[in-house]
């Protein structure tokens, strides 16, 4: 009886390992290299055709904009002579102004945030406040974080601030 039990146990084990249930994605076999394929094909290493492949491959890095005479989209590259300015706002890696609209409290609270500010941040805040204030009856609320280099304005002034910064080209 004991011997029979032992036998059945090993048999069970064997069956268990043999019957692998391919449930998981990782159970499926890897694509293998079919060396002796019957499908006829030709290989092309023509550089003319490879140009079309390169055309659809994305660039590895964000391209640096080439200076142009006019920009119809009203985007402008950052100015060259910025040494005499009291403050500096670094562009983002996409060469855009770091001005963002932060929406919170289920779309109720809108905060305009200007990041990457170096230099006299308090002067910039004052100038922006003077520019925005005529557009609103209520007093403008703002927060200046000198250490992190950002200013936050309560309300949606993204386009106004972008316009002002693009005009000054800072």
């Amino acid at each position: 009886m004991l011997a029979f039990k032992k036998l059945s146990c090993t048999l069970n084990k064997y069956i268990y390992t043999a019957c692998k249930r391919n449930i998981s994605f990782y159970d499926s076999p890897f694509l293998v290299d079919h060396e002796n394929t019957k499908i006829k094909f030709e290989t092309s290493t023509s550089p003319e055709e490879w140009k079309y492949v390169e055309r659809v491959l994305p660039p590895a890095v964000v391209p640096t904009p080439i200076p142009k005479n006019n920009y119809p989209s009203k985007w402008k590259p950052q100015g060259d002579n910025l040494k005499d300015r009291p403050y500096f706002i670094a562009r983002t890696k996409n060469h855009m102004l770091p001005v963002y609209l932060c929406i919170s409290q289920r779309g109720i609270r809108r905060i305009t945030k200007i990041k990457n500010i170096q230099g006299d941040i308090w002067l910039l805040e004052k100038q922006l406040r003077d520019f925005i204030q005529p557009q609103d009856i209520r007093p403008i609320r703002s927060q200046v974080n000198e250490f992190a280099g950002y200013i936050r304005f309560h309300g949606d002034y993204v386009n106004a601030i972008k316009y002002w910064l693009m005009k000054r080209n800072v």
Binding site: I39, F41, E42, T45, S46, W50
Partner: peptide, 8 residues
């Protein structure tokens, strides 16, 4: 950098 084209 090769393009394979079927002939079948």
């Amino acid at each position: 950098k090769v393009i394979l084209k079927p002939l079948d």
